[in-house]
Design a protein around this nucleic acid. Structure first.
Lengths: 185, 185
DNA sequence: TTGACTTTACCGACCGGACGGTATAGTTGC
DNA sequence: GCAACTATACCGTCCGGTCGGTAAAGTCAA
């Protein structure tokens, strides 16, 4: 088994278990078993549970980054917020599971999500700088964050189609902002 | 100490500890110590940790209910969404801490937030039924949920004043919807 | 190329402590 | 004295982390 492949298996196993057994019940033994290795092997790759949690957070950040960076770089007005929305829609269509590993990290230590906050703050900054209507874009960002958070916390109040409707409506609203601005300017 | 007072102290202690030590590190010993009673006393009031977690969730639901029911019952258009926003603003002004007990419950068992989902689903239903523009109201609800979730998860990207600006802007937007509707109808 | 040595990757037994929960014996207001 | 309430002592389990070991895969001088 190559280094990267085992690491990935461990990360995925931890993520799956965090979702199914609850973020607070994540044990190293269980993760090792789910990943198909021994506890010793697990601790070879991640020398402590804290390190594993950090890796879970970092992994999420990386995925977020690569998924957005391509779409965002068109440089068009509203490219950033549109990329964020598109990414959300894509995740829904693919059935991507929520990043429950983040909850496991949070359960261990509330400060472990600080990197997430930093990254999202940066990203929101780019959204606002790039937006036709910064407040509307911020609202859109928050609403998507709300939808994501609800899935993460298992408190979704909208089903898939209601969610899709809302996102559609939001998208046309944003386009309306953009259009009225470019016609006015 | 009367029954209700001790119960309350325990609930508050659990909430505080969940926030400070991380939702996954909440132990009965620590809660008892923080509440100023012994573990035996704690287990007299809540026969198991699960029951304590359920009570934490229920407590949050009750607070949510009583805070909203008065404002919501004016029956005016958009009363529900406005009540929700007003409640959020009031919490911010009072410096109300986030309901970290919910995270502790979630850490123990993902299904423990099911009652929260039900309640919020009901509430969103009332918001939409009562709204001049249901989609706009839903968007507003989601954005507020996003703000709340970010504070809960310790990933706030907006500071207090940015948050206040956004909520102000959102409120005027909603009023604009309402006004254009009543002038059109 | 071959034998000595190092590195990488992984295993599984074990330990100490923390934690949830029980049992039981006080204590106090009525 | 009785019922509500609280405290103390204890038990068994689970869990994070350590540790000694193993096997395969390089590395490299002679």
């Amino acid at each position: 088994m190559t280094r990267g492949a085992t690491r990935r298996r461990i990360l995925d196993a931890a993520q799956d278990l965090a979702r199914s057994t609850g973020p607070g019940n994540l044990s190293l033994d269980a993760v090792a078993a789910q990943a198909g290795i021994s506890k010793g092997g697990l601790l070879y790759h991640f020398p402590s549970k804290n390190r594993l949690m950090e890796a879970l957070v970092e992994d999420h950040l990386n995925r977020f980054d690569v998924a957005l960076s391509t779409q965002e770089k068109t440089g068009r007005p509203d490219a950033a917020i549109c990329a964020y929305i598109a990414q959300f829609v894509a995740e829904r269509q693919c059935g991507t599971p929520p990043p429950s590993g983040l909850l496991a990290a949070l359960a261990e230590d509330p400060s472990m999500l600080d990197p997430v906050r930093r990254q999202e703050r940066d990203f929101l900054g780019r959204i606002r700088a790039n937006a036709t209507d910064p407040q509307m874009a911020t609202l859109a960002f928050m609403a998507i964050q709300g939808l994501r958070a609800m899935e993460l916390l298992n408190t979704q109040v909208l089903n898939r189609s209601e969610e899709a409707d809302l996102v559609d409506w939001l998208t046309t609203r944003l386009q309306a902002c953009s259009a009225s601005d470019s016609s006015a300017g």
